[in-house]
Design a protein around this nucleic acid. Structure first.
Length: 210
DNA sequence: TGCCAGGGATTAG
DNA sequence: CTAATCCATGGC
């Protein structure tokens, strides 16, 4: 692990913590966090919340509900999140996979690395979705790398990407789940504020190494 | 009005 | 291993 990257990562974390402090982000039981993790793929969170409400109204916001419901019912409930046909299939595949594995309780018993491997084996669950489930659903110390994280880190001169970037931050963050939850939330808030509004020239993080 | 959202699978080079 | 494409609605 390049020590320069470690120092830059620490710098970013310190900067973000000073900027935002403690923030509440993505609370919920494992089941709903996992469903939300699929729905939020390439989608604004406000629309995900609406879809979750629709699913609750129909009493299908659960593994059993998703497995039993007709595709059309799920599609109608989650239409507002976009990609609704694909996401319906992903939710169904996901729900039945978890049930076959013994349900949420069985997943809770699994060691983090094993659980991550299981989640990644489900069609439609990639690295970010799996890590979101681990970090916010199962409260494991699994750092979530998303497009924002990549953008900001590249901006700060950190070359690592993907799994390497994840490992870098996990080696720098305190081992508790809380630190991981906070840090990813900081990245998203900061990105929305800066990069997403094309204000990278004002980005304090980029200027950390100058 | 066009661009992009808290991705992932698939395909082509 | 990197880049392009598809999936699709909704908000600004």
């Amino acid at each position: 692990m390049a020590s320069l990257s470690v120092r830059k990562a620490k710098g970013i974390i310190d900067d973000l913590e000073r900027r935002y402090g403690e923030i509440a982000w993505w609370p919920g039981c494992p089941e709903e966090v996992m469903i939300g993790a699929v729905l939020t793929q390439q989608t604004r969170w406000e629309n995900v919340e609406k879809a979750l409400e629709h699913l609750r109204d129909r009493d299908i916001c659960s593994l059993e509900g998703l497995v039993a419901a007709p595709d059309a019912d799920i599609e109608e409930a989650i239409r507002c999140t976009g990609f609704f046909r694909m996401k319906t299939q992903r939710l169904k595949a996901f729900a039945s996979s978890v049930q076959q594995a013994g349900g949420i309780d069985a997943l809770e018993e699994m060691e983090t690395g094993m659980l991550r491997g299981f989640l990644l084996g489900i069609k439609g669950v990639g690295p970010e979705t799996a890590d979101s489930m681990l970090c916010y659903g199962f409260l494991r110390p699994s750092f979530v790398i998303d497009a924002y994280t990549h953008r900001i880190c590249a901006c700060a001169g950190i070359d690592e990407r993907g799994e390497e970037l994840k490992s870098l931050f996990e080696s720098v963050l305190p081992p508790e789940n809380y630190a991981h939850r906070q840090c990813h939330a900081w990245f998203v808030e900061y990105a929305k504020e800066m990069c997403a509004r094309r204000r990278c020239e004002e980005c304090r993080i980029r200027n950390l190494n100058e």
